[in-house]
Computed example of a mutant assay.
Amino acid sequence: MLHSKAGWSPVLASASVGLIGSFLPVNSNMRAAIYSGSFAGMCSSELVSNYWEIFGISLIGAVIYLYSLKLFQGFGGKLGTIAFVSVALFYLIKGSII
């Protein structure tokens, strides 16, 4: 929403969320989930039009993240992949409902 409401670039908005999340007093898994969510938030504002849709993408991403905690440890790109898959699944689900 920093992109669509405040006029920030998607990259700046994602980096800001990741930076703020890094200072929260939570464990490293939670920080990773916050940063993955910020990647998912970089999707087009034409796809996401309200907060419920952001919640849907976040829920899909959280489930994928929880199921993949033990998978692909040590491999790069896991958070971006989770963000991509959660947005893609949301897009497919939204398209089949409409």
Results as ranks from 00 to 15, higher is better:
2 L>S: 05
2 L>G: 08
2 L>F: 14
3 H>R: 03
3 H>D: 12
4 S>C: 04
4 S>I: 01
5 K>C: 01
6 A>C: 13
7 G>H: 06
8 W>H: 08
9 S>R: 07
9 S>I: 08
10 P>W: 01
10 P>Y: 02
11 V>N: 05
12 L>E: 14
13 A>S: 15
14 S>I: 04
15 A>K: 11
16 S>M: 06
18 G>E: 10
18 G>A: 15
18 G>V: 01
19 L>T: 08
19 L>V: 14
20 I>R: 10
20 I>A: 15
21 G>K: 09
22 S>Y: 12
23 F>K: 07
24 L>W: 14
24 L>A: 15
26 V>I: 15
26 V>H: 09
26 V>K: 05
27 N>A: 07
27 N>T: 10
28 S>T: 10
28 S>G: 03
31 R>Q: 15
32 A>V: 02
32 A>F: 01
35 Y>M: 11
36 S>V: 00
36 S>N: 04
38 S>A: 15
38 S>I: 06
39 F>G: 01
40 A>T: 01
46 E>A: 14
54 I>L: 13
55 F>V: 02
56 G>R: 08
57 I>F: 07
57 I>R: 00
58 S>W: 03
60 I>N: 03
60 I>P: 08
61 G>V: 13
62 A>D: 09
63 V>N: 05
63 V>L: 14
63 V>D: 08
64 I>S: 00
67 Y>M: 13
67 Y>W: 05
69 L>P: 05
70 K>I: 06
70 K>C: 06
71 L>R: 04
72 F>W: 07
73 Q>V: 01
74 G>T: 12
76 G>L: 13
77 G>E: 03
78 K>V: 00
79 L>G: 00
79 L>K: 09
81 T>M: 09
82 I>T: 08
85 V>F: 01
86 S>W: 04
87 V>H: 04
88 A>S: 02
90 F>S: 04
90 F>T: 00
90 F>N: 04
91 Y>P: 06
92 L>Q: 13
93 I>D: 11
94 K>Y: 12
94 K>L: 07
95 G>W: 04
